[in-house]
Design a protein around this nucleic acid. Structure first.
Lengths: 160, 160
DNA sequence: CATCTCACTTGCAATTTGCAAGCAATATTC
DNA sequence: GAATATTGCTTGCAAATTGCAAGTGAGATG
């Protein structure tokens, strides 16, 4: 058994008390999947910043600590938001790819970003972003989808 | 000084390490405002379920504990998502109203709900909801806005 | 005045987080 | 091919947060 196969076996348990039935209500279900800041930020990195490797997530501005990172990646894999793969060109590396389920969250994510852009006085997002999304949401979504496809196309053959 | 004026003075501090600069990046900013399950669920209660009173939040299915409830309400007031008012018809009661800032989140919230409806196999949301939102997002948003207006119109005169 | 309701506050045990090390499995360098 | 990096985690703890149960004080109620 290689170390790459043992992921998610230990460490802190799931984020908070989300073990049981945080489903049914749509808002509650979403809270159970990405309703903590780290999961949320990781999804941003995967969906919007093209990050795929453990080390890339670790180097994010927010400086997530490594045990929490491992825990949240496992959580996102468990909830079907990411799939985990061994890099065939360098078998000590691992990458995570967004699934259809997480990609389907892009519209909502962009909606949140438009909101932040409007209400965060220190926002770093350019006005053009909110403008673009408001004038052509479908096109903006399609653009982000295409970016994801590009990133994933450049990855090595996924194992397994 | 009445007890109603002392809210938010003590208890647990803010959710996690969000004291400093969780702004700039739009996703990070959003995470700082409602990126924890309880804030998220409270916003749902205010925006979608017409809840306004402390006691109403407390009675939600998710059974938030009272100290966390007080803490999160204070957080949402601090971040400009809610305003706190004393009920003029019964001065020991307090209600919280959504601001323009939190109402502006409705589109994103509905987007999240559509996503959950699609991916939570145990969803309690009817198909008709996602269908309605997809075919007429603006109309659906307007409907929820109007519901909020109705609820708020029925509240006593806010103090202060 | 006695009692009840409401909105919190407080104390404390149980979790969870964050930080710093450690570690096994490749990769790379010499 | 042995020594040294890298990479992706795991582990140990102290510190912070959560959850639970039990107050508390202001105001309403009878």
């Amino acid at each position: 058994m290689t170390k790459a196969d043992t992921a998610g076996s230990a460490g802190p348990s799931k984020p908070k008390g989300w073990n049981k039935e945080w489903n049914g209500c749509p808002v509650r279900y979403a809270a159970g999947v990405f309703g903590d800041k780290w999961s949320f930020v990781l999804l941003r990195d995967v969906l919007l910043h093209g990050k795929r490797y453990y080390g890339e997530f670790q180097r994010s501005e927010e400086r997530i600590s490594t045990n929490i990172l491992a825990n949240r990646l496992a959580h996102l894999v468990e909830t079907g938001m990411l799939t985990r793969h061994i890099d065939s060109t360098s078998r000590n590396k691992v990458f995570y790819r967004p699934t259809a389920k997480s990609r389907a969250l892009i519209p909502a994510f962009l909606g949140v970003m438009v909101w932040s852009t409007e209400y965060d006085s220190c926002t770093e997002a350019p006005d053009s972003f909110a403008k673009a999304f408001r004038s052509d949401p479908k096109g903006t979504i399609a653009w982000y989808e295409a970016e994801i496809d590009k990133v994933d196309a450049a990855l090595p053959d996924p194992e397994p």
